[in-house]
């Protein structure tokens, strides 16, 4: 931790960007499995359970899990360190608020980040801690084969309209976070080129709309059909 504080501002940005890329790939895989909660195929439940089984038992994924948690940890810690330093860099604020043009969502990264972190803790409590045996699965959620019944646990949560509403708001904020994050990560790693940057920005816009929208479809389905 103290070593992390001593890293140069640019090194911190590289770590932020690399960890961010890892988290963005993870989010895509997570969405790929989650979408099978929606019954758009007959065997959607089996595919979902197979996906969960693979993600919770595959040894390679278990190794990846260490990197994933490491990625989350450094992204959060360095994000906080950078933000504190940035606040300290202007001890006296301007009386007239800043009217300069700039990336809109970048101004709110720490706030959207904190909301995502709070949800992440709740989310871990609902699912991951159950897997680890730290918390009990909700009543009546018996195991299916050797796995926890994550399918019914998810449905149980989404059938609560308040939870679904919070989930939708969270992923809208996640979209804001990702919209800046994607192109910003490239810039932080020095990858800015007149030929490719417009393409990177377009991919970032696409990713930040499609991925959160994919997650939002699930509670939306439950709100509409249940």
């Amino acid at each position: 931790m103290s070593k992390m504080l001593r890293y140069s501002s640019l090194t911190k940005k590289y770590i932020m960007a690399l960890a961010g890329f890892l988290l963005m790939v993870f989010l895509l895989i997570h969405l790929g499995i989650n979408l099978f909660i929606i019954p758009f195929t007959e065997n959607h439940q089996d595919i979902f359970r197979d996906g969960v089984h693979f993600m919770t038992t595959n040894p390679l994924i278990k190794i990846m899990e260490i990197f994933l948690f490491g990625g989350f940890l450094v992204h959060i810690l360095i994000g906080i360190i950078l933000q504190l330093r940035n606040w300290m860099a202007r001890p006296v604020r301007y009386a007239k608020s800043n009217h300069s043009q700039g990336s809109f969502f970048s101004k709110y990264m720490i706030y959207t980040g904190v909301v995502i972190l709070i949800f992440l803790i709740i989310h871990l409590g609902n699912f991951y801690f159950v897997k680890l045996g730290l918390t009990e699965a909700p009543e009546g959620m018996s195991r299916v084969a050797d796995d926890h019944d994550f399918y019914n646990m998810a449905i149980n949560l989404f059938s609560n309209k308040i939870y679904s509403g919070i989930y939708i708001v969270l992923f809208i904020l996640m979209g804001f976070h990702l919209n800046h994050a994607f192109q910003s990560a490239f810039q932080s790693l020095g990858l800015n080129h007149s030929k490719y940057t417009p393409f990177i920005k377009a991919v970032g816009d696409f990713y930040s709309i499609v991925v959160p929208l994919g997650f939002i479809l699930i509670p939306l389905y439950f709100i509409i059909y249940y």
Partner: peptide, 14 residues
């Protein structure tokens, strides 16, 4: 004690 870049690009605009 200068802050870090968060790629807001207000610098370029101004």
């Amino acid at each position: 004690g200068f802050g870090n870049c968060t790629n807001t690009y207000a610098c370029e605009a101004e």
